[in-house]
Write a protein that binds this DNA or RNA. Structure first.
Length: 260
DNA sequence: GTCCAGGTCGCGC
DNA sequence: GCGCGACATGGA
């Protein structure tokens, strides 16, 4: 649950054992309490429903099959620990929309600012503490979002995204159609406001597609320090190291980052 | 004051 | 297609 920082972004709350979040289900706000026991997920706080299952499936990547990746790790000394540790799935938001907003909020800022931005956005726009819908966000002006949620220039992208969805100009269902080849999905994601190569690769990873590594300061720092004695090298050189992992490149890097 | 953080965008060549 | 500066914000 704690593989990348998402568990710290509102409306998620994590106390070290139970992951909680407010969620709007069947027209009412409920508090979900999610825990994992022996690899099984336990959900409390809501009646079973198709909508709940859909959201939980995205949050925990329940439909993502990482068997091929795990098989590869068995043959690589540095990754032997991965399978036993149960590593390989990223915590996601309940919807693609939520993750796009959160990824925009991670760009070109410190993590503590990201946490604050999302916290303020949920507080301002999300009724009852749930993650706000595009409608909830589109009610506010760009200026208001920027000032009250401390989004900086990202308010422009988030405002454009929310309004684009509300007006029907951005159709996330269509954009994220899983039947598309990875390269086309990548291109579609990159066309979203505020999403570039980094964001698109991250969104793909949330679809369980790890073909592209999201090159950011974190990736560069890790590779530089781990493999190049702190000397700076080109992105291409850094990426070459992970080519052998094929469509699991991002996950391979990520597992190195989180180490045994 | 300056630099930079899990980048993106628009512009000029 | 590629390099470059601008862009809000807050902490070092």
């Amino acid at each position: 649950m704690t593989s990348h920082g998402w568990y710290r972004l509102a409306p998620f709350r994590w106390d070290g054992k139970v992951l909680r979040r407010m969620e709007l289900l069947g027209g009412k706000v409920v508090e979900l309490a999610i825990s994992a026991t022996r690899g099984a997920l336990r959900i409390e706080g809501a009646e079973d429903s198709a909508e709940l299952r859909r959201r939980i499936a995205r949050m925990f990547q329940l439909d993502v099959d990482i068997a091929e990746f795990l098989a590869m790790t068995r043959d690589v000394a540095t990754h032997q620990w991965v399978e036993a540790a149960g590593f390989g799935r990223l915590l996601c938001g309940a919807t693609l929309w939520e993750d796009i907003v959160k990824i925009i909020a991670t760009t070109n800022v410190t993590w503590s600012q990201t946490v604050r931005m999302v916290e303020l956005l949920v507080a301002k726009c999300g009724p009852g503490g749930v993650f706000p819908s595009p409608h909830d966000v589109a009610r506010f002006s760009e200026r208001e979002l920027q000032d009250d949620c401390r989004l900086g220039y990202r308010a422009k992208s988030i405002h454009a995204l929310a309004n684009g969805i509300v007006r029907g100009e951005i159709d996330l269902e269509k954009i994220s159609d899983p039947r598309q080849p990875t390269a086309e999905l990548f291109a579609s994601y990159k066309r979203l406001p505020g999403i570039g190569p980094y964001g698109a690769a991250h969104l793909l990873a949330m679809d369980g597609r790890h073909d592209f590594i999201a090159v950011d300061t974190e990736f560069r720092r890790f590779v530089r320090e781990t493999y190049h004695g702190g000397r700076r090298v080109s992105d291409a050189t850094m990426l070459r190291r992970y080519k052998k992992w094929g469509r699991w490149q991002y996950l391979a890097y990520w597992s190195e980052l989180h180490g045994p």
